[in-house]
Design a protein around this nucleic acid. Structure first.
Length: 274
DNA sequence: CGAGCTGTTAACAT
DNA sequence: AATGTTAACAGCTC
């Protein structure tokens, strides 16, 4: 699923479903998904901890377990399900958290790309992925004065720059395609060719697209089953991603690769800049 | 059957 | 240092 709106949707659902519950135990079936600790330590620290809160930074989901924080990244296909203790384990459930009330929270990930880190609360700000992450489109620091100079000194495609979480956090392949369409920017435009006006648009439309997507529970494209009963509806609003005809000018939508990622754009509305 | 595709990130090579 | 490529993995489509 997950770009920022999908992670935010999961956060809200999980907070409602498991906030306040106490974890009796956790089973880790794929040890290497836990990046920063031995599984034995991981289990030991999580045991008997209560989920005080669930927050989000960029695409990272943070379970606040008293003095520890469980940092979860869903990568390509991570999902959570809440099931009763008795239900059989699915082939792709790689972590199972057992609550004291007989329910369980299961991390499901067909490709096993997802990651877990368990850190002390006081170390959150020094935790590398968080420390190196750029501001989200909504953050106060996300201004033209911040973003323009960064884009100015890079020669990479604007699409690649906007996918770089160190520059701006939260956009993934789908929403970048949408944002660039709304900005009228060709995805291969060298980053340094963006003018201040373009950067202003990038910020504005990133906010608009992400906000609207959160409102609609994210985008569901390839996942057939919904996790937590969450099926996004933003796919109905997509203007270029997976589309064949431009909603503005009715030209055919082009599909190319930029930085190895499938890229959709309108040749007429998103002119290449030389 | 194989090849190529998929919402991400980081390690690696150049 | 910055940028491009590949790997981690599984399943679906052609």
């Amino acid at each position: 699923m997950p770009e920022l709106p999908e992670v935010e949707t999961v956060r809200r659902s999980l907070k409602r479903l498991v906030g306040g519950k106490t974890i009796r135990d956790v089973d880790v079936f794929v040890p290497k998904m836990v990046r920063n600790l031995d599984v034995s330590k991981f289990r030991q620290h999580i045991e008997n901890k209560t989920i005080i809160d669930i927050s989000r930074i960029g695409k990272y989901l943070l379970f606040h377990l008293e003095d520890w924080i469980l940092v979860s990244h869903l990568r390509m296909e991570g999902r959570y399900f809440i099931k009763h203790l008795d239900e059989a384990k699915d082939k792709h459930e790689h972590l199972i958290f057992y609550f004291t009330d007989g329910t369980t929270m299961r991390y499901h990930d067909t490709r096993k790309f997802g990651t877990f880190d368990l850190i002390k609360q006081e170390n959150l700000s020094s935790f590398e992925p968080v420390q190196k992450m750029g501001p989200e489109p909504f953050d106060q620091e996300m201004t033209v004065d911040y973003l323009y100079p960064i884009l100015k000194r890079k020669t990479i495609a604007i699409k690649s720059a906007l996918l770089d979480q160190h520059i701006i956090a939260g956009l993934g392949n789908i929403y970048v395609n949408e944002v660039l369409f709304l900005c009228g920017l060709h995805p291969e435009t060298p980053s340094h060719k963006c003018r201040k006006k373009d950067v202003k648009n990038i910020i504005k439309y990133s906010q608009e697209v992400l906000e609207e997507a959160i409102k609609r529970g994210g985008t569901t494209i390839r996942s057939y089953t919904s996790s937590l009963g969450v099926t996004g509806r933003f796919q109905q609003q997509l203007k270029v991603h997976t589309k064949e005809v431009c909603p503005t000018c009715e030209s055919p939508i082009e599909k190319i690769k930029v930085g190895g990622r499938g890229t959709y754009y309108c040749k007429k509305c998103q002119k290449k800049r030389y």
